[in-house]
């Protein structure tokens, strides 16, 4: 006589699967809650320790080369800065004469890139600065040349997860420098980076520079985004879309700067 199998043990895998699915759905439903954010921060914090020895070895091997490059960049930047200081002073004086209000100021927090994930589904990177260092959620992130990188979407005490411009869910308000037209930049699979809904009479040409518009609390204006690469024909008779080549090289990001 064969031993009888209890119904409970027969359905044990199915019960376990349903439990796992239910918990997964509960997690999806609780995305963004304080408890969930704490759990996520704990995981990010723990994982960041894996990068400590790697970063140390990397920094030792590149520090001399980086220092020389930085010296050169510093001298060039100092000359540029002197030019701009004169222009800023002049601009400020003219604005005062016209009665404009002052611009928002921001601080910059330098951060090392710990890891990055790049694919069509998600594009993010982890950096070694967190809430303890003054980083806040939805802070803007730029590279060493002040070009747009992304924004902070998750935080732990010592790390932050940055959503890159190339992420499918990323949107940013941008301005075309020459024509001064404003639009929303996003990534599309068929055309790459596109500024949607640009008025059909906008005088945009290939090669024009694109910067952030400043119409948000995340990014100040004038952060360089990229160049116009192509302009699509007018869609629905009143708008056209403008394709953009991003300036930031995401494959070479080692340090970023978080705007606070």
């Amino acid at each position: 006589m064969s031993p009888s199998v209890s119904p409970l043990s027969r359905y044990k895998p199915l019960v376990n699967l349903l439990t796992a699915l239910a918990v997964s759905l509960a997690i999806i439903g609780s995305n963004g809650t304080p408890l969930f954010n704490q759990a996520r921060a704990l995981i990010m914090e723990s994982a960041a320790y894996l990068y400590v020895p790697i970063r140390w070895i990397e920094s030792i091997s590149t520090i001399q080369k980086d220092y020389r490059e930085l010296q050169q960049e510093h001298i060039k930047a100092q000359i540029e800065l002197n030019k701009f200081k004169t222009l800023v002073y002049e601009n400020q004086r003219l604005k005062n004469m016209l009665g404009f209000k002052g611009e928002k100021s921001f601080q910059v927090i330098p951060a090392n890139v710990l890891s990055d994930v790049g694919s069509y589904t998600m594009n993010s990177l982890t950096v070694d600065q967190g809430s303890q260092d003054g980083v806040e959620l939805l802070s803007g992130v730029v590279d060493a040349k002040a070009q747009l990188v992304g924004k902070v979407v998750a935080l732990s005490q010592n790390t932050a997860l940055v959503q890159l411009v190339s992420d499918k869910n990323f949107r940013v308000s941008v301005r075309e420098m020459r024509s001064r037209d404003v639009g929303i930049l996003s990534f599309t699979l068929s055309k790459g980076y596109v500024i949607q809904d640009v008025p059909k009479n906008a005088e945009v040409i290939a090669g024009d520079s694109v910067v952030t518009s400043g119409f948000s609390d995340i990014f100040p204006e004038h952060i360089f985004v990229g160049w116009v690469s192509d302009i699509s024909p007018v869609v629905e008779d009143y708008v056209k879309s403008v394709q953009v080549d991003l300036a930031t090289d995401f494959n070479r990001l080692e340090e970023v700067f978080i705007l606070k």
């Binding site: 796992a20 997964s24 995305n31 995981i43 998600m122």
Partner: peptide, 28 residues
């Protein structure tokens, strides 16, 4: 099932910018 759930949750927590928990569901 449970390894899929745990590993899926951790990889989502480390990398995902939206819908965290979807990998744990799929891997389970």
């Amino acid at each position: 099932i449970w390894l899929g759930f745990i590993l899926g949750f951790i990889i989502d927590a480390l990398t995902a910018t939206s819908m965290i928990g979807i990998s744990s569901l799929a891997l389970s």
